[in-house]
Design a protein around this nucleic acid. Structure first.
Lengths: 204, 204
DNA sequence: TCGTTGTTTAACCGTATTGTTAGTTTTGAC
DNA sequence: GTCAAAACTAACAATACGGTTAAACAACGA
Protein backbone atom coordinates (compact mmCIF):
# COMPACT_ATOMS: atom_id res chain seq x y z
CA UNK A 1 0.00 0.00 0.00
CA UNK A 2 3.04 2.25 -0.22
CA UNK A 3 1.83 3.59 -3.56
CA UNK A 4 -1.56 4.53 -2.16
CA UNK A 5 -0.11 6.34 0.84
CA UNK A 6 2.01 8.49 -1.43
CA UNK A 7 -0.97 9.50 -3.54
CA UNK A 8 -3.05 10.29 -0.48
CA UNK A 9 -0.26 12.43 0.95
CA UNK A 10 0.24 14.29 -2.34
CA UNK A 11 -3.47 15.10 -2.47
CA UNK A 12 -3.47 16.29 1.15
CA UNK A 13 -0.53 18.61 0.56
CA UNK A 14 -1.99 20.04 -2.63
CA UNK A 15 -5.37 20.43 -0.94
CA UNK A 16 -3.85 22.32 1.98
CA UNK A 17 -2.19 24.82 -0.34
CA UNK A 18 -5.30 25.25 -2.48
CA UNK A 19 -7.76 25.57 0.41
CA UNK A 20 -5.53 27.95 2.38
CA UNK A 21 -5.07 30.20 -0.62
CA UNK A 22 -8.63 30.27 -1.97
CA UNK A 23 -10.92 28.94 0.73
CA UNK A 24 -13.41 26.12 0.37
CA UNK A 25 -15.78 27.61 -2.16
CA UNK A 26 -13.14 28.88 -4.56
CA UNK A 27 -10.81 25.90 -4.33
CA UNK A 28 -11.12 23.54 -7.30
CA UNK A 29 -10.76 19.80 -6.81
CA UNK A 30 -9.44 19.56 -10.36
CA UNK A 31 -6.67 22.03 -9.51
CA UNK A 32 -5.82 20.10 -6.33
CA UNK A 33 -5.55 16.90 -8.37
CA UNK A 34 -3.46 18.62 -11.02
CA UNK A 35 -1.06 20.04 -8.39
CA UNK A 36 -0.84 16.61 -6.75
CA UNK A 37 -0.08 15.02 -10.12
CA UNK A 38 -2.99 12.60 -10.04
CA UNK A 39 -6.31 12.16 -11.82
CA UNK A 40 -9.10 14.08 -10.16
CA UNK A 41 -11.02 10.84 -9.75
CA UNK A 42 -8.34 9.81 -7.23
CA UNK A 43 -9.37 12.67 -4.98
CA UNK A 44 -12.85 11.20 -4.74
CA UNK A 45 -11.46 7.69 -4.38
CA UNK A 46 -9.49 8.66 -1.28
CA UNK A 47 -11.67 11.36 0.28
CA UNK A 48 -15.10 10.83 -1.32
CA UNK A 49 -16.07 14.53 -1.44
CA UNK A 50 -14.49 17.98 -1.50
CA UNK A 51 -16.20 18.73 1.82
CA UNK A 52 -14.64 15.76 3.61
CA UNK A 53 -11.20 16.65 2.28
CA UNK A 54 -11.66 20.24 3.41
CA UNK A 55 -12.76 19.25 6.89
CA UNK A 56 -9.65 17.14 7.34
CA UNK A 57 -7.42 20.12 6.45
CA UNK A 58 -9.42 22.57 8.57
CA UNK A 59 -9.37 20.39 11.69
CA UNK A 60 -5.62 19.91 11.41
CA UNK A 61 -4.95 23.64 11.06
CA UNK A 62 -7.17 24.49 14.03
CA UNK A 63 -5.43 21.88 16.16
CA UNK A 64 -2.10 23.47 15.25
CA UNK A 65 -3.32 26.91 16.33
CA UNK A 66 -4.69 25.70 19.65
CA UNK A 67 -1.53 23.75 20.48
CA UNK A 68 0.72 26.73 19.87
CA UNK A 69 -1.18 28.84 22.38
CA UNK A 70 -1.85 26.30 25.10
CA UNK A 71 1.79 25.78 26.02
CA UNK A 72 2.96 29.38 26.41
CA UNK A 73 1.01 30.57 29.43
CA UNK A 74 2.59 29.40 32.68
CA UNK A 75 1.74 31.09 35.95
CA UNK A 76 5.19 31.15 37.56
CA UNK A 77 6.30 34.52 36.16
CA UNK A 78 5.04 38.11 36.62
CA UNK A 79 1.81 38.80 34.75
CA UNK A 80 3.30 41.36 32.37
CA UNK A 81 5.95 38.86 31.32
CA UNK A 82 3.31 36.20 30.77
CA UNK A 83 1.29 38.52 28.56
CA UNK A 84 4.39 39.46 26.57
CA UNK A 85 5.21 35.77 26.09
CA UNK A 86 1.65 34.96 25.02
CA UNK A 87 1.45 37.82 22.54
CA UNK A 88 4.89 36.91 21.18
CA UNK A 89 4.02 33.24 20.82
CA UNK A 90 0.79 34.10 19.04
CA UNK A 91 2.65 36.45 16.71
CA UNK A 92 5.24 33.77 15.94
CA UNK A 93 2.53 31.23 15.18
CA UNK A 94 0.78 33.58 12.78
CA UNK A 95 4.13 34.48 11.20
CA UNK A 96 4.79 30.79 10.62
CA UNK A 97 1.29 30.32 9.17
CA UNK A 98 0.59 33.65 7.47
CA UNK A 99 -2.28 32.34 5.34
CA UNK A 100 -4.14 30.75 8.22
CA UNK A 101 -5.90 33.83 9.72
CA UNK A 102 -7.39 34.92 6.39
CA UNK A 103 -8.35 31.32 5.69
CA UNK A 104 -10.24 31.03 8.98
CA UNK A 105 -11.86 34.47 8.73
CA UNK A 106 -13.05 33.69 5.20
CA UNK A 107 -14.62 30.39 6.15
CA UNK A 108 -16.25 31.81 9.29
CA UNK A 109 -17.74 34.72 7.36
CA UNK A 110 -19.04 32.74 4.44
CA UNK A 111 -22.29 31.23 5.53
CA UNK A 112 -24.14 30.51 8.72
CA UNK A 113 -24.32 26.72 8.43
CA UNK A 114 -20.59 26.46 7.89
CA UNK A 115 -19.97 28.87 10.78
CA UNK A 116 -21.99 26.74 13.17
CA UNK A 117 -19.98 23.66 12.27
CA UNK A 118 -16.46 25.05 12.22
CA UNK A 119 -16.54 27.87 14.80
CA UNK A 120 -16.84 25.57 17.84
CA UNK A 121 -13.99 23.50 16.42
CA UNK A 122 -11.84 26.61 16.45
CA UNK A 123 -12.89 28.10 19.77
CA UNK A 124 -13.10 25.05 22.04
CA UNK A 125 -9.33 24.48 22.24
CA UNK A 126 -8.79 28.14 23.18
CA UNK A 127 -11.10 28.16 26.21
CA UNK A 128 -8.48 26.82 28.61
CA UNK A 129 -6.02 29.59 27.73
CA UNK A 130 -8.70 32.27 27.92
CA UNK A 131 -9.87 31.30 31.38
CA UNK A 132 -6.30 30.95 32.67
CA UNK A 133 -5.41 34.42 31.39
CA UNK A 134 -8.58 35.72 33.01
CA UNK A 135 -7.63 34.33 36.40
CA UNK A 136 -4.08 35.70 36.26
CA UNK A 137 -5.39 39.06 35.07
CA UNK A 138 -7.74 39.43 38.03
CA UNK A 139 -5.03 38.39 40.48
CA UNK A 140 -2.54 40.90 39.04
CA UNK A 141 -5.16 43.66 39.14
CA UNK A 142 -5.93 42.87 42.80
CA UNK A 143 -2.23 43.03 43.60
CA UNK A 144 -2.18 46.44 41.93
CA UNK A 145 0.44 45.43 39.39
CA UNK A 146 -1.60 46.50 36.36
CA UNK A 147 -4.39 48.77 35.22
CA UNK A 148 -7.60 46.73 35.28
CA UNK A 149 -8.94 45.44 31.97
CA UNK A 150 -11.52 42.98 30.73
CA UNK A 151 -10.06 39.63 29.71
CA UNK A 152 -11.98 39.74 26.46
CA UNK A 153 -10.46 43.14 25.61
CA UNK A 154 -6.94 42.02 26.37
CA UNK A 155 -7.20 38.83 24.34
CA UNK A 156 -9.01 40.52 21.49
CA UNK A 157 -6.43 43.31 21.24
CA UNK A 158 -3.55 40.83 21.12
CA UNK A 159 -5.24 38.75 18.45
CA UNK A 160 -6.29 41.81 16.44
CA UNK A 161 -2.84 43.37 16.31
CA UNK A 162 -1.05 40.13 15.48
CA UNK A 163 -3.52 38.81 12.92
CA UNK A 164 -3.86 42.13 11.15
CA UNK A 165 -0.10 42.41 10.81
CA UNK A 166 -0.32 39.67 8.19
CA UNK A 167 -3.88 39.97 6.94
CA UNK A 168 -3.40 43.69 6.28
CA UNK A 169 0.16 43.44 5.03
CA UNK A 170 -0.63 43.92 1.32
CA UNK A 171 -2.50 47.11 2.17
CA UNK A 172 0.25 48.41 4.44
CA UNK A 173 2.83 47.65 1.76
CA UNK A 174 0.94 49.80 -0.72
CA UNK A 175 -0.08 52.50 1.76
CA UNK A 176 3.41 53.12 3.14
CA UNK A 177 5.19 52.41 -0.16
CA UNK A 178 7.31 49.54 1.14
CA UNK A 179 9.59 47.32 -0.91
CA UNK A 180 10.28 43.69 0.06
CA UNK A 181 13.06 44.62 2.47
CA UNK A 182 10.84 47.26 4.11
CA UNK A 183 8.14 44.62 4.51
CA UNK A 184 10.55 42.23 6.21
CA UNK A 185 11.58 44.99 8.59
CA UNK A 186 8.00 46.13 9.16
CA UNK A 187 6.91 42.64 10.21
CA UNK A 188 9.87 42.31 12.58
CA UNK A 189 9.12 45.69 14.12
CA UNK A 190 5.45 44.85 14.42
CA UNK A 191 6.22 41.95 16.74
CA UNK A 192 7.86 44.25 19.27
CA UNK A 193 5.35 47.03 18.66
CA UNK A 194 2.29 44.83 19.21
CA UNK A 195 3.67 43.59 22.49
CA UNK A 196 4.58 47.14 23.55
CA UNK A 197 1.06 48.38 22.70
CA UNK A 198 -0.52 45.69 24.86
CA UNK A 199 1.89 46.24 27.75
CA UNK A 200 1.40 50.03 27.62
CA UNK A 201 -2.30 49.48 28.06
CA UNK A 202 -1.64 47.38 31.18
CA UNK A 203 0.88 49.70 32.86
CA UNK A 204 -0.47 51.94 35.61
CA UNK B 1 -36.44 56.24 -19.28
CA UNK B 2 -38.06 56.10 -15.85
CA UNK B 3 -38.54 52.38 -16.16
CA UNK B 4 -34.91 51.77 -17.05
CA UNK B 5 -33.57 53.86 -14.19
CA UNK B 6 -35.54 51.79 -11.72
CA UNK B 7 -34.18 48.54 -13.12
CA UNK B 8 -30.63 49.85 -13.08
CA UNK B 9 -30.99 50.97 -9.46
CA UNK B 10 -32.49 47.65 -8.38
CA UNK B 11 -29.57 45.81 -9.94
CA UNK B 12 -27.05 48.12 -8.26
CA UNK B 13 -28.59 47.60 -4.84
CA UNK B 14 -28.81 43.84 -5.23
CA UNK B 15 -25.25 43.76 -6.57
CA UNK B 16 -23.93 45.73 -3.60
CA UNK B 17 -25.47 43.28 -1.14
CA UNK B 18 -24.30 40.22 -3.05
CA UNK B 19 -20.76 41.46 -3.66
CA UNK B 20 -20.29 42.69 -0.08
CA UNK B 21 -21.48 39.39 1.33
CA UNK B 22 -19.68 36.97 -0.98
CA UNK B 23 -16.99 38.91 -2.81
CA UNK B 24 -16.50 39.05 -6.57
CA UNK B 25 -15.65 35.44 -7.28
CA UNK B 26 -18.46 33.91 -5.23
CA UNK B 27 -21.16 36.40 -6.14
CA UNK B 28 -23.54 35.06 -8.82
CA UNK B 29 -24.95 37.40 -11.45
CA UNK B 30 -28.00 35.16 -11.61
CA UNK B 31 -28.56 35.68 -7.88
CA UNK B 32 -28.13 39.44 -8.20
CA UNK B 33 -30.73 39.48 -10.97
CA UNK B 34 -33.09 37.30 -8.95
CA UNK B 35 -32.76 39.58 -5.90
CA UNK B 36 -33.33 42.63 -8.10
CA UNK B 37 -36.43 41.01 -9.60
CA UNK B 38 -35.20 41.15 -13.20
CA UNK B 39 -33.96 38.74 -15.86
CA UNK B 40 -30.24 38.12 -15.63
CA UNK B 41 -29.87 39.32 -19.21
CA UNK B 42 -30.82 42.77 -17.91
CA UNK B 43 -27.68 42.82 -15.83
CA UNK B 44 -25.58 42.48 -18.97
CA UNK B 45 -27.72 44.98 -20.82
CA UNK B 46 -27.03 47.69 -18.23
CA UNK B 47 -23.51 46.82 -17.10
CA UNK B 48 -22.15 44.55 -19.86
CA UNK B 49 -20.07 42.31 -17.54
CA UNK B 50 -19.93 41.14 -13.95
CA UNK B 51 -16.50 42.76 -13.68
CA UNK B 52 -17.76 46.21 -14.71
CA UNK B 53 -20.66 45.99 -12.28
CA UNK B 54 -18.29 44.98 -9.50
CA UNK B 55 -15.87 47.78 -10.23
CA UNK B 56 -18.66 50.32 -9.94
CA UNK B 57 -19.61 49.01 -6.49
CA UNK B 58 -16.00 48.73 -5.33
CA UNK B 59 -15.06 52.27 -6.38
CA UNK B 60 -18.07 53.72 -4.59
CA UNK B 61 -17.29 51.87 -1.36
CA UNK B 62 -13.64 52.94 -1.43
CA UNK B 63 -14.65 56.55 -2.03
CA UNK B 64 -16.92 56.34 1.02
CA UNK B 65 -14.07 55.05 3.19
CA UNK B 66 -11.62 57.72 2.08
CA UNK B 67 -14.14 60.54 2.59
CA UNK B 68 -14.91 59.48 6.14
CA UNK B 69 -11.26 59.70 7.13
CA UNK B 70 -10.16 62.81 5.27
CA UNK B 71 -12.39 65.19 7.19
CA UNK B 72 -11.57 64.22 10.77
CA UNK B 73 -7.97 65.26 11.09
CA UNK B 74 -7.60 69.01 11.72
CA UNK B 75 -4.42 70.39 13.17
CA UNK B 76 -5.85 72.97 15.55
CA UNK B 77 -6.13 70.69 18.59
CA UNK B 78 -3.61 68.80 20.74
CA UNK B 79 -2.18 65.73 19.02
CA UNK B 80 -3.63 63.22 21.47
CA UNK B 81 -7.11 64.65 20.85
CA UNK B 82 -6.59 64.47 17.11
CA UNK B 83 -5.57 60.82 17.32
CA UNK B 84 -8.57 60.00 19.49
CA UNK B 85 -10.87 61.73 17.00
CA UNK B 86 -9.30 59.91 14.06
CA UNK B 87 -9.52 56.50 15.71
CA UNK B 88 -13.10 57.20 16.77
CA UNK B 89 -14.13 58.36 13.30
CA UNK B 90 -12.58 55.30 11.73
CA UNK B 91 -14.34 53.05 14.22
CA UNK B 92 -17.67 54.75 13.50
CA UNK B 93 -17.21 54.32 9.79
CA UNK B 94 -16.47 50.64 10.11
CA UNK B 95 -19.41 50.25 12.48
CA UNK B 96 -21.68 51.83 9.88
CA UNK B 97 -20.23 49.55 7.16
CA UNK B 98 -19.44 46.35 9.03
CA UNK B 99 -19.18 44.18 5.90
CA UNK B 100 -16.77 46.50 4.12
CA UNK B 101 -13.46 45.52 5.77
CA UNK B 102 -13.92 41.81 5.12
CA UNK B 103 -15.02 42.63 1.58
CA UNK B 104 -11.87 44.63 0.88
CA UNK B 105 -9.54 42.16 2.58
CA UNK B 106 -11.05 39.30 0.58
CA UNK B 107 -10.64 41.06 -2.75
CA UNK B 108 -7.10 42.21 -1.97
CA UNK B 109 -6.04 38.70 -0.95
CA UNK B 110 -7.59 36.84 -3.83
CA UNK B 111 -5.23 37.24 -6.75
CA UNK B 112 -2.32 39.39 -7.78
CA UNK B 113 -3.82 40.96 -10.90
CA UNK B 114 -6.88 42.10 -9.01
CA UNK B 115 -4.72 43.43 -6.19
CA UNK B 116 -2.71 45.57 -8.58
CA UNK B 117 -5.84 47.13 -9.99
CA UNK B 118 -7.83 47.78 -6.83
CA UNK B 119 -5.19 48.39 -4.17
CA UNK B 120 -4.08 51.78 -5.54
CA UNK B 121 -7.74 52.77 -5.75
CA UNK B 122 -8.03 52.09 -2.04
CA UNK B 123 -4.78 53.56 -0.86
CA UNK B 124 -4.48 56.74 -2.94
CA UNK B 125 -7.24 58.65 -1.10
CA UNK B 126 -5.64 57.79 2.25
CA UNK B 127 -2.21 59.25 1.47
CA UNK B 128 -3.17 62.80 2.43
CA UNK B 129 -4.36 61.70 5.89
CA UNK B 130 -1.30 59.49 6.42
CA UNK B 131 1.20 62.23 5.63
CA UNK B 132 -0.68 64.80 7.71
CA UNK B 133 -0.74 62.46 10.72
CA UNK B 134 2.97 61.83 10.17
CA UNK B 135 3.77 65.55 10.29
CA UNK B 136 1.72 66.16 13.43
CA UNK B 137 3.22 63.07 15.06
CA UNK B 138 6.78 64.30 14.52
CA UNK B 139 5.92 67.76 15.77
CA UNK B 140 4.28 66.40 18.93
CA UNK B 141 7.25 64.11 19.56
CA UNK B 142 9.66 67.04 19.18
CA UNK B 143 7.60 69.03 21.66
CA UNK B 144 7.89 66.08 24.03
CA UNK B 145 4.13 65.62 24.30
CA UNK B 146 4.21 61.94 23.36
CA UNK B 147 6.36 58.87 23.27
CA UNK B 148 7.90 58.65 19.81
CA UNK B 149 6.39 56.16 17.36
CA UNK B 150 6.52 55.39 13.66
CA UNK B 151 3.57 56.79 11.71
CA UNK B 152 3.04 53.43 10.04
CA UNK B 153 2.80 51.70 13.42
CA UNK B 154 0.31 54.22 14.79
CA UNK B 155 -1.94 54.07 11.74
CA UNK B 156 -1.68 50.31 11.45
CA UNK B 157 -2.58 49.76 15.10
CA UNK B 158 -5.65 51.98 14.84
CA UNK B 159 -6.84 50.24 11.70
CA UNK B 160 -6.08 46.78 13.08
CA UNK B 161 -8.00 47.25 16.31
CA UNK B 162 -11.02 48.87 14.67
CA UNK B 163 -11.29 46.55 11.68
CA UNK B 164 -10.82 43.40 13.74
CA UNK B 165 -13.57 44.46 16.11
CA UNK B 166 -16.01 43.66 13.33
CA UNK B 167 -14.11 41.14 11.22
CA UNK B 168 -13.42 39.01 14.27
CA UNK B 169 -16.78 39.53 15.92
CA UNK B 170 -18.23 36.08 15.11
CA UNK B 171 -15.18 34.47 16.68
CA UNK B 172 -15.29 36.69 19.76
CA UNK B 173 -18.98 35.96 20.14
CA UNK B 174 -18.29 32.25 20.24
CA UNK B 175 -15.04 32.47 22.24
CA UNK B 176 -16.48 34.61 25.04
CA UNK B 177 -19.96 33.07 24.91
CA UNK B 178 -21.79 36.31 24.16
CA UNK B 179 -25.49 36.67 23.37
CA UNK B 180 -26.79 39.46 21.12
CA UNK B 181 -26.95 41.98 23.96
CA UNK B 182 -23.41 41.11 25.03
CA UNK B 183 -22.27 41.65 21.46
CA UNK B 184 -23.89 45.10 21.35
CA UNK B 185 -22.15 46.01 24.58
CA UNK B 186 -18.84 44.50 23.47
CA UNK B 187 -18.79 46.60 20.31
CA UNK B 188 -19.61 49.77 22.24
CA UNK B 189 -16.86 49.03 24.77
CA UNK B 190 -14.41 48.25 22.00
CA UNK B 191 -14.71 51.78 20.62
CA UNK B 192 -13.47 53.30 23.91
CA UNK B 193 -10.97 50.50 24.47
CA UNK B 194 -9.35 50.80 21.05
CA UNK B 195 -8.86 54.53 21.52
CA UNK B 196 -7.49 53.99 25.02
CA UNK B 197 -5.04 51.35 23.77
CA UNK B 198 -3.69 53.74 21.15
CA UNK B 199 -3.46 56.68 23.56
CA UNK B 200 -1.74 54.53 26.21
CA UNK B 201 0.94 53.73 23.68
CA UNK B 202 1.50 57.45 23.03
CA UNK B 203 1.61 58.63 26.67
CA UNK B 204 5.06 59.13 28.14
C1' DT C 1 -50.99 55.99 -36.72
C1' DC C 2 -46.41 55.03 -37.85
C1' DG C 3 -41.75 54.25 -36.95
C1' DT C 4 -37.74 54.79 -34.14
C1' DT C 5 -35.51 54.04 -30.06
C1' DG C 6 -34.76 52.03 -25.76
C1' DT C 7 -36.21 48.11 -22.79
C1' DT C 8 -37.28 43.37 -21.75
C1' DT C 9 -37.74 38.36 -22.36
C1' DA C 10 -36.71 33.60 -23.37
C1' DA C 11 -33.86 30.62 -25.34
C1' DC C 12 -29.43 29.25 -26.30
C1' DC C 13 -24.00 28.54 -26.16
C1' DG C 14 -19.65 27.35 -24.21
C1' DT C 15 -17.22 26.31 -20.42
C1' DA C 16 -16.07 24.77 -15.85
C1' DT C 17 -16.81 21.93 -11.92
C1' DT C 18 -18.16 18.09 -8.72
C1' DG C 19 -19.00 13.57 -8.73
C1' DT C 20 -19.70 8.68 -10.82
C1' DT C 21 -18.68 4.42 -13.22
C1' DA C 22 -17.03 0.79 -15.94
C1' DG C 23 -13.09 -1.15 -16.96
C1' DT C 24 -7.83 -1.67 -16.60
C1' DT C 25 -3.49 -2.15 -14.23
C1' DT C 26 -0.78 -3.04 -10.21
C1' DT C 27 0.19 -5.23 -5.81
C1' DG C 28 0.84 -8.70 -2.51
C1' DA C 29 -0.58 -12.94 -0.07
C1' DC C 30 -0.83 -17.72 -0.90
C1' DG D 1 2.20 -18.26 -10.90
C1' DT D 2 -2.68 -17.30 -9.40
C1' DC D 3 -6.06 -14.54 -7.91
C1' DA D 4 -8.46 -11.23 -5.26
C1' DA D 5 -8.21 -6.74 -3.58
C1' DA D 6 -6.47 -2.24 -4.01
C1' DA D 7 -5.10 1.52 -7.00
C1' DC D 8 -5.77 3.83 -11.04
C1' DT D 9 -7.56 5.70 -15.75
C1' DA D 10 -10.60 7.62 -19.03
C1' DA D 11 -14.86 8.75 -20.23
C1' DC D 12 -19.16 10.38 -18.95
C1' DA D 13 -23.21 12.74 -16.36
C1' DA D 14 -25.33 16.64 -14.26
C1' DT D 15 -25.47 21.04 -13.03
C1' DA D 16 -24.33 25.89 -12.79
C1' DC D 17 -22.57 29.99 -14.42
C1' DG D 18 -21.32 34.16 -17.44
C1' DG D 19 -22.49 35.91 -21.52
C1' DT D 20 -25.01 36.40 -26.26
C1' DT D 21 -28.81 36.90 -29.42
C1' DA D 22 -32.99 37.35 -31.82
C1' DA D 23 -37.25 38.61 -31.31
C1' DA D 24 -41.06 40.89 -28.69
C1' DC D 25 -42.67 44.90 -26.30
C1' DA D 26 -43.28 49.75 -24.63
C1' DA D 27 -42.77 54.67 -25.01
C1' DC D 28 -43.16 58.61 -27.56
C1' DG D 29 -42.47 62.24 -30.93
C1' DA D 30 -43.67 63.19 -35.87
Amino acid sequence: MGRGDHTEQAILEAAEAEFLEKGFALAKTTEIARAAGVTHAMLHYYFRTKEKLFERIFREKVRLLAESLAATFDSGRPFMEQVAALAGAHFDFVAANPCLPMFILREIHLNKERREVYLPLLVAPLQATISEVGKQLEAAARRGEIRSLRTSDLMFSIASLNVMTFVGLPIAKEAFGMDDEDVRQFVAQRRAENIEVVLSRLRK
